[in-house]
Nucleic acid binder design. Structure first.
Lengths: 153, 153
DNA sequence: TATTGTTATACTCTATAACTATA
DNA sequence: TATAGTTATAGAGTATAACAATA
């Protein structure tokens, strides 16, 4: 947890100018909220969409696997899966090899919704990015990879 | 709200390889969830902390001003303020110039909690950033500014 | 009339605790 | 015993609708 008290303590000045973690986390929190507030496509939230895209691209997985990948508890993921199932976007199938497990797979309807949502999902941010200088877009391209790696590490 | 339908349509390719908006938004969503799951300091959420820090740094503001700044509705901000008030971190004062308005200000206790939370808040991400190459940290430094600007634009 | 703040209510997403079925 | 899935329940954090007080 608190692996670096010396590092944290290094940030002693009341208004330390270069707390990179604070700057990055602050930007992430604010942009995430903004993305949510600008969302056009209703009917499907972040985790729902993330799970659906994963199932479309990577094939069927168990509930436990999905909960680990999305870093939520199994009951939380179960509710997400229940909602996606009620909407007809995924199906549950018994795992023939281990009858405790349930394999969760996207339906044709789910694949279609994922594709359609993808188009709408990033319209707002793409409009903002379009107006940036090319150098800034390159910075964001690299930053997205770095941040993604940190998030999934 | 939906200011750029033509721009959305510009992204027509079924699997556009370089959808920067998708990469950025995906990284933001995942990192935000990871930050929440790694959080050490309980007792105060993102919006609570953001409002408290703003009040400490920028002084008293009305409910409407806070709701605009945080991009939530006034009733949502009211609940946040109620929670902060119940915890003793902020106080409401009547505005002598306009008796419809209520000025919301951080208490000494709120100032102390903001300072303490700040130290814990970014321990996890700072530990991750510490191990990055200097070039990557520079990228993130620039990216944080760009993303923050987009989020608040 | 318009604006500010507020209450009531509901929905989404998360969590913990406790249960069932299978290994 | 341990693991996978599930149900019940609760707590944030958001929203809309409707209202009171003041400008």
């Amino acid at each position: 947890m608190n692996l670096q008290l010396s590092t944290a303590a290094a940030n002693e000045a009341p208004d330390a100018p270069s707390d990179l973690g604070m700057e990055v986390a602050g930007a992430v929190v604010r942009l995430h909220r903004r993305l949510r507030s600008e969302r056009i496509d209703d009917q499907i939230g972040d985790t729902h969409y993330s799970v659906l895209v994963f199932l479309v691209k990577q094939g069927a997985h168990s509930l436990k696997e999905l909960s680990i990948r999305e870093r939520v508890t199994p009951p939380s993921m179960n509710q997400t899966v229940n909602a996606l199932e009620a909407a007809g976007y995924i199906e549950r199938h018994d795992d023939p090899d281990d009858r405790r497990r349930v394999l969760i797979a996207a339906t044709d309807s789910g694949i279609a919704v994922a594709k359609q949502t993808r188009r709408l999902r990033h319209a707002w941010i793409n409009a903002r990015l379009k107006d940036l200088p090319a150098a800034d877009r390159e910075v964001l391209e690299r930053a997205a990879q770095i941040l993604r790696h940190i998030a999934d590490s």
